[in-house]
Structures are given as C-alpha cells and as structure tokens.
Amino acid sequence: MIGLVARRLLAAIPVLFIVALIAFGLLYLAPGDPAAVIAGDIASPEDVARIRESLGLNEPFFVRLGIFLNDLLHGNLGTSIFSNQPVTELIAQRMGPTLSLACLTIVLSVAIAVPLGALAAWYARSPMDWIALTAGIVGFSVPVFVIAYLLVWVFSVKLAWFPVQGYKPLSTGILTWLHHLTLPAISLASVYIALITRITRTSMLEVIGQDYIRTARSKGLGDGIIIWRHALTNASIPIVTVIGIGIALLMGGVVVTETVFSIPGIGRLLVDAILRRDYPIIQGVMILLSAIYVAVNICVDISYIFFDPKLRN
C-alpha cells in the first residue's frame, strides 16, 4: 500500500511539472506581443515596457523559465500586475468561499447521483430509470448559468426562500452558510450529477448482470442489501474515477457560479483578472486548480484499495 501511494505521488511530479511548463509557455506561444495585449489599447509605450519588464519578457527564455520554476518550488506564484500583491496571498484570501462551494457541491452531487444511478440500473426501464437518463442528458446540455438563473428566478425572486446572491462564511453559523450556498451548489452540481448518474447507472448495469448477484438474490437477500452492499461496492471503482475526473469540470463551473451569485472566491478573482488581463493571477489559478485536480485524483487512486481488496497486497 505504501508502495502504491509512493508510486502515485512520484507519477504526479512530471504531470505537475508539465502543467507549470504549459502555464509558463502560453505567454510565449501567444501570437503578437503579450505585453501589448495585457496593457490594453489605451496604454502608453512606458506601460507596455513596464509590463514586459514585470513579466520578465526581456530576459532570455530559459533564464526566465529557471526563475519561474524556482519561484514555484518556493511557493511563489508571482505578483499581480494590477495590484502588485503576491498571487499566493490573493488566492489565499479567496480560498474559503470556493472550498465551501466545491465541497458542498461534491457532497450534494454524490448524495443525489449515486442512489439515483444505482436505482435506475436496478429498476431498469422504470420511471426511475427515465428520470436518471433525463438528468444525465439535461445536466450536460443546460449550462450552469442558465440553471443558476432559473433557480434564482423561482426560489429567490418569486418565492424569496433564498438570497439572490452573496456569501456568508461558515463562521456566521451553519444555517446562514447553507442558506447562501444552497442555490449555487445546486446549480454547480447539475453537470456533476449528470456525470455521476450516468457512470453509476452504466457501472451498476454491468455488475447486476453477474452471477454472484443472482446467487445473492436466490439465497433470499433483500434488494437493499444487494444493491448497496453487493452491487455498489463492486461497481464503485469507475464511479470514484469519474468523480475524480469530474473535478476539472467542477472547477470550470465554479468560475461561472461565483460570477452569477457574486461569491468572492477564486472564480471571481479569475474573472476580475481576465477583465484586467492580469496574467500572473490567471497563471497562478491555473496551476493551483490543476494541482488540486492531481491531488484529488491521487486520493481517488488510493481509494481503490478500499474498494478492491485484491489491490491491498
């Protein structure tokens, strides 16, 4: 087991290194003069020169790359062009709301999608199956912000059950926190629920057709025990894999959800950075979110041991 964990951690190093290279290299691959683009149309030549200097575009490529990687290893993601604050500091300030939203969304999605997919497979071709299939296709087709506005219109504007926008940290009390985060989390969960429902259903359908499920049924076990203990445990590896891969999708959705609900998280930081073309922030957020993705997927790989006893040796 320690061997597996070590192997996965080692395999993550080249991936993270290449992510850093991509984030760094984009600045050079972009057509035209990135300093001029970032400075905008009304910038003076001095502004452009200052930005070129602060991005280090005057230095030779490999010198700059060396400095960038060295900084990165020391946890330094550069400084914002606009506010001159360190990017790590800016990100740290915004981390709380984003983590709250992401965690609540994951819990909500798994709690809804796994039972839905499992029951859809067990009662194939029933109304339950039909609901799961519909959720699986609608969640992929309706963009996050459309679902978000629909929910706001019904539950905030018309029924006034939830606030239209805004965020309250967990320290203000769990109910206030939930009150503000429920609609954002449901909107963000829509894609994720679609993804997990689909894979749960497919994976369960495969398992349910196998002999040991028939054996379990013929010896008189109840449906509940067969579905949740026998079938779902064996169907779980593809499900947790997709939950891990879906993190990338979730991170993309966070940006949109935070914009709709004015949540002061990483997504808002990013959108503000886009408007000001503050590339170091964009770069930093990209590296951070990719690192989170890699970390979550390492956890997913390690969780296989939990689901599949064969991997324990």
């Binding site: 290449i18 992510v19 035209g32 683009v37 970032i38 999708l249 990013l270 886009i274 979110l289």
Partner: peptide, 24 residues
C-alpha cells in the same frame, strides 16, 4: 501521454481563458 495527462488536469475553461487573455 504525460503531456496529455497534464492538459487533462487543467480545467478546459481555464485553459481557454488563459489563451484568450493573451490574444485579442
């Protein structure tokens, strides 16, 4: 494959945003 893995780790929206931020 390593390069692809790295690209898969970057959320598609973010990769597109970074490319757009550097071009008109």
């Amino acid at each position: 494959s390593r390069v692809l893995e790295a690209f898969m780790a970057i959320p598609a929206v973010l990769l597109a945003i970074s490319l757009i931020a550097l071009t008109q």
